[in-house]
């Protein structure tokens, strides 16, 4: 499967080949690093073992290629990381509080949110980040329509639902600002966070 989002046709030709080689090289580097960290020290033996394991993993468990059309933006990554930590702490304290509050039964809701950038990478990263941050959990994704079905905990009224939608779009904007391409960033910024895109 050469997976790519419905919005981005898979690139072909020499550039795609180069991109695939680059992705594999990154995967090998990461796997070798993990192998060395797991053994606890960097040595030639571990380096060799890591390379063997990495090659084995890539040969026997090939992953669908992820089209990465964007670029890493240091400032966007920093903002994303900082907000992620802040919201992880806030969400954790919130859930911890309602867990121990006597006699409190939280109400919840499932809302559908359409993402503005329908690529696989954006869908996956946004879903991943959302599950860890503000009171939201993904119960279902619609890959073709780029819709996330989000379970929201502790809903107290319609305002909280609107707020949850807004939160999802804000997280998506931060993801795109960190790793998206210029075109994707324009796409995200052109639709206000409190409006449903068509």
């Amino acid at each position: 499967m050469t997976g790519s989002g419905p919005g981005a046709p898979p690139p072909r030709g020499v550039r795609a080949q180069l991109g695939r080689r680059r992705d594999q090289l990154i995967a090998v580097g990461w796997l070798v690093l993990v192998w060395n960290l797991l053994w606890g020290d960097f040595s030639w033996g571990n380096l060799l073992g890591g390379l063997l394991v990495a090659a084995g993993v890539l040969v026997f468990f090939p992953l669908p290629s992820v089209t990465f059309g964007g670029r890493l933006r240091p400032r966007g990554l920093l903002v994303f990381g900082a907000r992620f930590v802040v919201e992880l702490v806030r969400a954790s304290l919130h859930v911890a509080r309602i867990a121990v509050q006597p006699g409190y039964v939280p109400r919840s809701a499932i809302v559908a949110v359409r993402l503005r950038v329908p690529t696989d990478l954006n869908l996956a990263l946004t879903a991943e980040a959302l599950s860890l941050v503000p009171g939201t959990l993904i119960v279902e994704t619609d890959r073709d329509a780029a819709v996330l079905y989000v379970h929201v905990l502790d809903v107290r009224g319609p305002a909280d639902l609107a707020n949850a939608r807004k939160q999802v779009r804000i997280v998506e904007r931060r993801v795109v600002a960190a790793v998206g391409s210029a075109a994707e960033l324009r796409q995200v910024l052109s639709v206000p966070v409190d409006k449903e895109s068509s």
Binding site: L88, V89, A91, S92, L93, H94, V95, A96, R97, I98, A99, V100, V105, P106, S108, S131, L132, V133, G135, L137, V139, H151, L153
Partner: peptide
Amino acid sequence: LSLAAAIGVLRFPDTVTRMHAATKPQVL
């Protein structure tokens, strides 16, 4: 925080709500 997560898993009304407790306070 892990204790609060455990209490949440025990007390929340259904599976999906419990997963909230099992992800956020637990991960932190």
